[in-house]
């Protein structure tokens, strides 16, 4: 399973490095979203800093939809999905590999968006480990759910519109918990406030990673 997941993750990351869709489309989209949020909130930097945690995670959520759609679409060209099914790769390994590739892209994106939040919104990070922990845990959860629901919508002609519809409500706990932990991380001195939300992220991740490992194969065969 681990060998297969490394193989699939390596393939997906190589494809992304070649196509540069993440660099030229997904990351700029995230930055544009942050800028537009800033316009909507007005010139008051205090208000922008206050809204920064939520706006960061909303931008990450939207970018996740794009990254997952891209991950699904590379398997839909020239019968590639049949090709990967025919290879006999362990479905759990495929799930972990595709989710890992999405997670790597999201981590890079979150660094870019994090810098954007600090520069644009004037947010200052008081408890860095809370910020890092929420990003890592949130990314695992988003990548796992995104990959799972991406597989679910893969065989459908309406997958571009169906995926956000399926994924965004399911990812709401990540948005909520990530925002709360970021609020604690930016406000400082309230680490205990962030801990329950981190635990929620851990549980969310465990559920969706385990679910993906179990059901990715049957979903793939049915798609």
């Amino acid at each position: 399973m681990w060998r297969d997941s490394l193989l699939v993750a390596g393939k997906d990351l190589r494809i992304e490095a070649r196509s540069r869709v993440g660099l030229y489309q997904v990351a700029p989209f995230g930055v544009v979203a942050l800028v537009l949020f800033a316009f909507a909130l007005g010139p008051d930097r205090t208000q922008m800093a206050k809204g920064a945690p939520g706006l960061f995670w909303v931008a990450v959520l939207f970018c996740t939809v794009l990254a997952v759609q891209r991950s699904v679409s590379v398997e839909s060209v020239d019968g590639a999905r049949d090709g990967i099914r025919l290879s006999g790769l362990d479905p759990a390994g495929q799930f972990l590999g595709k989710a890992a590739a999405v997670a790597v892209q999201l981590i890079v994106l979150e660094v870019v968006l994090g810098i954007g939040v600090v520069l644009l919104y004037g947010a200052s990070i008081q408890v860095p480990w809370l910020i890092v922990a929420s990003c890592v845990l949130g990314t695992v959860g988003l990548a796992a759910t995104g990959t799972l629901y991406g597989a679910l919508s893969a065989g459908l002609r309406v997958r571009e519109t169906l995926l956000p519809f399926l994924f965004l409500p399911i990812a709401a706990p990540v948005l909520l918990a990530g925002t709360r932990v970021w609020q604690a991380g930016l406000a400082g001195g309230t680490e205990s406030y962030g801990s329950p939300w981190l635990r929620l992220l851990v549980v969310f991740d465990a559920i969706y990673v385990a679910l993906g490992i179990v059901v990715f194969g049957p979903i793939q065969e049915a798609a």
């Binding site: 393939k11 190589r14 196509s19 590379v74 060209v77 020239d78 019968g79 590639a80 099914r85 006999g88």
Partner: peptide, 20 residues
């Protein structure tokens, strides 16, 4: 999964990734 590793299917599609 055991079977597929022992079978090769040449279909109408080439099963290639365009960016590789």
């Amino acid at each position: 999964n055991q079977l597929r590793r022992r079978v090769g299917l040449l279909s109408h599609a080439s099963h290639l990734y365009d960016d590789l």
